[in-house]
Amino acid sequence: MNILEINGYRAVISFDPQINMFRGEFVGINGGADFYATTVDDLRKEGEVSLKAFLDMCAEDGVEPRKQYSGKFNLRVPPDLHERLATQAAAHGKSINTWITELLSQCIRYDQ
């Protein structure tokens, strides 16, 4: 997968063919912190430097570095899909919310 964890913070990694470098961007933070390198080892090192600079600025400004999530989001689906979701959830003896939360939890892996 394209997620790199550095000191408990996650960054999404992509490759930019125009500059022939990997780019990392930390997600789930209150601000922006990105980094570039040509090798995976250097990417990790640059990520550590970028993260330290970001965390230092947060401490200096009194800002919480991690973004806080409410646990709620809206998802719009076509009416026929909504109906099928409701049917499947009921068949499993669960609410739509509970059933979809369980399905999403099975799909998301943080270890890679």
Rank of each mutant, 00 (worst) to 15 (best):
K45V: 14
G62S: 07
D42N: 12
Y36H: 09
P65A: 02
L51K: 08
R44M: 11
R44F: 03
E48P: 03
V63D: 03
A53P: 02
G62V: 02
V63S: 01
R44T: 14
T38M: 10
L51S: 10
R44W: 04
D56K: 11
R44A: 13
V49T: 13
C58S: 06
G47P: 09
S50W: 07
V49D: 13
F54A: 10
D41P: 00
D56A: 12
L43Q: 04
T38S: 14
E60K: 07
K45W: 08
G62Q: 06
T38G: 09
T39K: 01
K52A: 13
V49W: 06
E60V: 02
V40I: 15
F54P: 08
D42C: 00
L55P: 08
K52G: 00
V63W: 00
V40F: 08
M57W: 06
E64Y: 07
V49M: 11
V49E: 14
E60S: 12
K67P: 00
L51E: 08
D42E: 15
V49H: 12
T38F: 01
T38I: 06
K45P: 00
G62H: 02
E48G: 13
K52Q: 14
E64A: 15
K67R: 09
Y36G: 00
K45T: 15
P65R: 03
V63R: 04
E60P: 00
L43M: 04
S50K: 03
K45A: 15
R44L: 13
D56F: 08
A53S: 15
T39F: 07
A59L: 10
V49Q: 12
E46T: 12
E60W: 00
R66A: 07
A59P: 01
A59Y: 03
M57Q: 06
K45R: 14
D61H: 13
T39Q: 02
S50F: 09
C58A: 02
V49A: 12
D41L: 11
K45F: 12
D56H: 07
S50H: 07
E64V: 09
E64N: 13
T38W: 03
A37T: 01
G62P: 00
P65N: 05
M57H: 04
V63N: 01
F54E: 11
R44C: 05
L51H: 10
D61C: 09
R44D: 06
E46K: 14
V40H: 11
L51M: 10
S50Y: 08
E64I: 11
S50C: 15
G47Q: 11
Y36F: 14
K67W: 01
E64K: 06
L55K: 10
R44E: 15
V49K: 15
A59G: 08
D41C: 03
D61I: 09
R66I: 02
A59I: 02
L51R: 08
A37E: 02
T39P: 06
E46L: 08
V40G: 05
